[in-house]
């Protein structure tokens, strides 16, 4: 936990970095609230560390199953209007978004 001081689990810096990653624009008040909430929640959750999981395989799914595949059959698509009608900003059959700069 590189960015947290002492026994603190989440710092204000972490909160602000996480908010950025999640594309959430949080004001000071919200940042305080979530810093406090995450700290409280994780402090309670850290009790799972009493269990030794070194030899344990992680479970990605509730049960084991595999190879759900479909055949390579292309089907005709529905008219684009079916989706474009949901969007506010459309031009020339495309969705319009703020300029994406690289």
């Amino acid at each position: 936990m590189s960015e947290a001081k002492n026994d603190e689990l989440v710092s204000r810096e972490v909160i602000s970095r996480i908010a950025k990653l999640a594309r959430l624009d949080l004001d000071d008040n919200e940042q305080n609230t979530y810093e406090h909430d995450l700290e409280t929640i994780l402090d309670h959750f850290k009790k799972i560390n009493v269990y030794d999981t070194k030899q344990v395989e992680p479970a990605y799914h509730p049960h084991d199953y595999e190879n759900k595949l479909r055949e390579d059959d292309a089907k005709p698509s529905r008219p684009p209007q079916d989706w474009l009608a949901l969007a506010k900003q459309v031009k020339d059959g495309c969705y319009m978004v703020p300029k994406a700069v690289e």
Binding site: Y51, T53, E57
Partner: peptide
């Protein structure tokens, strides 16, 4: 916020992966 935190770099193993292993147990 909580979900992004536990997946983010430096915290994944301690929280998310730990939880997946506990899930297996």
């Amino acid at each position: 916020m909580l979900g992004t935190f536990v997946l983010s770099s430096g915290y994944y193993d301690a929280w998310y992966l730990k939880a997946l292993k506990m899930r297996r147990m």
